[in-house]
Amino acid sequence: MNQALRIVVVAPDLAVADPEDEHALQQAERARALHIGLLENNFNLVATLPADVFLSERIAQLQPDLIIVDAESDARDALEHVVLATRDARRPIVLFTNDEDRALVKDAVAAGVSAYIVAGLSTQRIRPILDVALARFQHEQALRAELADARTALRERKTIDRAKGLLMQRQGLSEQAAYEKLRKSAMDKGLKLGDVAQRMLDAMELLG
């Protein structure tokens, strides 16, 4: 993993107003452990942000490589904000929480969380957790790209077949002759075969 990885942490306000508030003290201690772990592993902690309506804008400005959600109890709300903030530019998301709600685990995985860690925030575990999260995210992105390419190829194949069919019907060509005509037109115009086929379909539709 690149040591210059830019990281944004999404976490609640860590100010402890009441020194007797054990829950708030535990949250503050978790946040300190996280920050120490990131610094010890030479990660670039860009900012710590609250999960609010301005999160999308702030993430867009900061352009982090990875987002860590540190949510002791409000994990679902925090996660919803982060998912909305990254829907147009996907990034690996790591969620640290003590929330053991199984429904939340399913929702988090479906939303694209790369690592869901329950009660596992320790400085020693941070690097391997982020390494695995980043590797998983990159693998999923590669699969998404492959699926998108396959869908594009299928659409293009269908477009070419339709164009061939029209040429065969209107010009009395064989399937091979129709294909060769499309291919020659694509070569002459310096275009992809699918683009030429689509243009031909558009023109024939206009002419009726």
Rank of each mutant, 00 (worst) to 15 (best):
L95E: 02
R76M: 10
P50K: 08
V94F: 11
F54S: 06
A47F: 04
A85G: 02
D70N: 12
L84N: 13
R87T: 07
V46Q: 03
A71F: 11
F43T: 00
V94L: 08
G120Q: 10
A89L: 12
D101T: 11
A119R: 15
D107F: 14
A108N: 03
P92N: 07
F54D: 01
P92Y: 05
A75L: 06
A47L: 01
I68F: 02
Q63S: 09
R76I: 06
A78N: 15
L95R: 01
N98Y: 08
L66H: 00
D107P: 08
D107Q: 13
A75H: 04
A71M: 05
N98V: 07
A51V: 00
D70Q: 14
V94D: 07
L66T: 07
N98M: 11
D52H: 06
V118G: 09
D52L: 04
L95K: 00
G120M: 12
K106A: 15
H81Y: 15
V82L: 02
G120S: 10
A51N: 04
A110I: 07
V53F: 01
D70S: 12
G112M: 01
Q63R: 11
A115I: 00
G112R: 12
F96Q: 10
F43E: 01
R90Y: 14
A119N: 15
S114G: 06
T97W: 06
V82H: 00
N98L: 07
R76C: 14
F43G: 00
P92E: 06
H81Q: 14
R76H: 15
L55D: 00
F43H: 02
I93G: 01
L104R: 13
A71S: 13
V82A: 04
V69E: 06
E80C: 08
K106M: 12
L95S: 07
D52C: 11
A103T: 14
V83N: 04
E100V: 03
A51C: 08
L104C: 13
P64C: 12
I68V: 03
R91C: 03
R87K: 10
L45R: 08
R58I: 03
T48Y: 02
I67W: 04
L79T: 02
F96L: 13
A47M: 10
H81T: 00
T86P: 03
P50F: 05
T97L: 01
P64R: 03
I68W: 02
P92W: 04
I68N: 02
D99Q: 13
H81C: 11
A51E: 05
V46M: 07
V83W: 07
A71Y: 02
P50W: 05
Q63M: 07
D65P: 00
I67D: 09
L95F: 09
I59G: 08
D107I: 08
N44K: 02
A51Q: 04
A89I: 05
R58E: 15
L55I: 09
I117P: 01
S73H: 15
T86H: 10
L55C: 03
D74V: 05
L49K: 10
D88G: 08
T48E: 14
E72Y: 15
V118R: 06
D52Y: 05
F43M: 09
A103I: 04
V94M: 08
A78M: 14
V118H: 11
L55Q: 06
S114A: 15
Y116F: 15
R102P: 05
Y116W: 09
A103R: 15
E57A: 07
A111V: 00
R102L: 13
L79P: 04
L84F: 03
G112P: 09
V113I: 10
L62G: 05
T48N: 03
L62N: 03
A71T: 01
K106H: 15
D99V: 12
